[in-house]
Design a binder for these strands. Structure first.
Lengths: 301, 301
DNA sequence: GAAATAGTGTCTCTCAGACAATATGCA
DNA sequence: TGCATATTGTCTGAGAGACACTATTTC
């Protein structure tokens, strides 16, 4: 690896010249995992197009990890709230307003950035799937959508005297037209007496910069969990959609097939029928629905 | 208000002399909401003592908010992980190891600290209730446990064209032997189309420094939610406990009575009987239980 | 009619919540 | 014996999941 940046420095040279000692305070960045769900181009009129969960990444134009792909993000401005910073970055990268945004987690290990101490506040944002054809904004050197696959390929549970250690290896694969990135993330749960601890570390990295692969993996888990008990999915849907489209979106995020009748029962109160119907399909046209904004989460607020 | 600090400055003087301009990066602190559940002193042998949820606060020895009470916390060291910083602060303040610790949320509004820009990463820690008689560590000028009461006293829901705005006013009361602190926190949920947003602001403050009252209130909500689907409660229990004690702990956190039979059904698999029994009570002695560390959260990990 | 998807009815199993009944140790 | 708590049994209704069935459109 001897890629050079615009100053002609290699990564090693860059790092030895980087002076972090003049700073007492850590740097703080905001990094956003931007999800959308795309429909593949319509193959024909006789079958439903497949859907995919996608995440937006930007190519790094400087050291470190030059040429690799990272989450869009940047430093928090002294005069802006961290939420504002996340919204601003999103705007700069995608030129879109998002439908849902939520703070995820703050990552603060000393060595997670090779330049200097960087604490990163991560956000998850969801974008309406019908609007993502729009080009990325002007800020990013290069931005691209990657399809997300997240698969547990090994599990382990070791029972100790007063508890257990559970490990889970996750293969994260991100795929675009011409490139596949990947990472292996080890998630560990340690139970000792009544003490519980979680860890999440990147143990293999292939084209994904920094520790961003574990942030994406964490985000996918959060999205899955929230799918089950909130209306978060509608942040990914266009205004009008069929129930089959909604179900496909659920399936693609959860990574499993769902039963049609049960699914419809479950989301019945969250949607409103419009009495309008699909057109131009070679099968029974489906009714178009919209989100019911008066749906009350049963958590009681 | 013209309290003076050790330099003889009032709050106003202190603030006008405070030079924040020399710093480009925000300060980063870690603040921890430390909970425990205490038993009141035993009143008699014929009835169960009441339990209370308590939070540890420290008295501020300098400006701003001189003399008011704040969450224990401090600046993140350049050479330590943020999790380590939280553990270190906890140790310095309480001299105790905690049984459970979890990152809560990161608060980053520009004006939340009058001195300068401070981003605060909040944690929640749970302490074994039988060990809290121990004095606070040497770091804190003064530390004290406060009983927590958290009550929604007003609700409002306004339906708009394409959604609604829901507001909830929470009175947070913190009570020690000789003092009662309080705050009113306004929690807002804005649903507009498919866009959902939450806000949480302090609209009245009485003895609680900074925005720490909303952090405590947020923490109480998180604790309540997690109580329902995790084993988090055991972080507050001693090693051996009766099922009634456990139930009382749940009740005091949730703020409502639970049905005994149903409660036992629910937590059946999370505990192990020891075949040992309480002594010295004027009623049927209860069996002592311990946490079952092999209980599998049904989330499948 | 065949293919493909839309949409519905119903059964079972589990779990949360309500209620009731019995057991036990000590003043 | 009576009080206060411990402990167990059972009923009901809601919801998740499995399965099977009918309906509608175009080719």
């Amino acid at each position: 690896m001897s890629l050079q940046d615009t100053n002609g420095l290699t990564e090693a040279e860059f790092l030895t010249n980087y002076d972090a000692s003049k700073f007492e305070r850590p740097s703080v960045t905001v990094d956003t995992v931007i999800f959308t769900i795309t429909s593949e181009a319509e193959v024909n009129k006789r079958s439903l197009p497949d859907k995919e969960l996608q995440v937006l990444l930007v190519k790094r134009g400087g050291h470190p990890y030059l040429g690799q792909w990272a989450l869009p993000g940047g430093f928090v401005n002294p005069k802006e709230d961290i939420d504002q910073a996340a919204v601003r970055e999103l705007k700069e990268e995608t030129n879109l307003d998002c439908r849902y945004m939520e703070q995820l987690y703050t990552w603060g290990e000393v060595e997670r950035d090779p330049r200097t101490r960087v604490i990163s506040i991560s956000y998850m944002a969801l974008i309406d799937s019908t609007k993502v054809t729009i080009e990325a904004g002007d800020d990013a050197s290069e931005a691209k959508w990657y399809s997300v696959r997240d698969k547990v390929f090994k599990k382990e549970k070791i029972v100790t005297g007063d508890g257990f250690v559970q490990k889970k290896w996750v293969l994260l694969e991100l795929e675009s037209n011409d490139e596949t990135l990947s990472a292996v993330i080890l998630v560990t749960k340690i139970v000792k007496g009544t003490t519980i601890k979680y860890e999440r570390e990147v143990i293999e990295r292939n084209g994904i910069a920094f520790d961003h692969s574990r942030i994406i993996q964490y985000s996918v888990e959060r999205l899955r969990n929230k799918l089950e008990y909130t209306d978060i999915a509608f942040g990914l849907m266009p205004e009008l959609f069929t129930l089959s489209e909604l179900q496909k979106s659920y399936e693609v995020i959860l990574g499993k097939k769902l039963n049609k009748a049960n699914f419809r029962q479950k989301i019945e109160k969250m949607v409103i029928g419009t009495n309008e119907y699909q057109k131009g399909k070679a099968y029974k046209p489906a009714e178009l629905y919209r989100f019911n904004p008066n749906w009350d989460e049963e958590d009681g607020f």
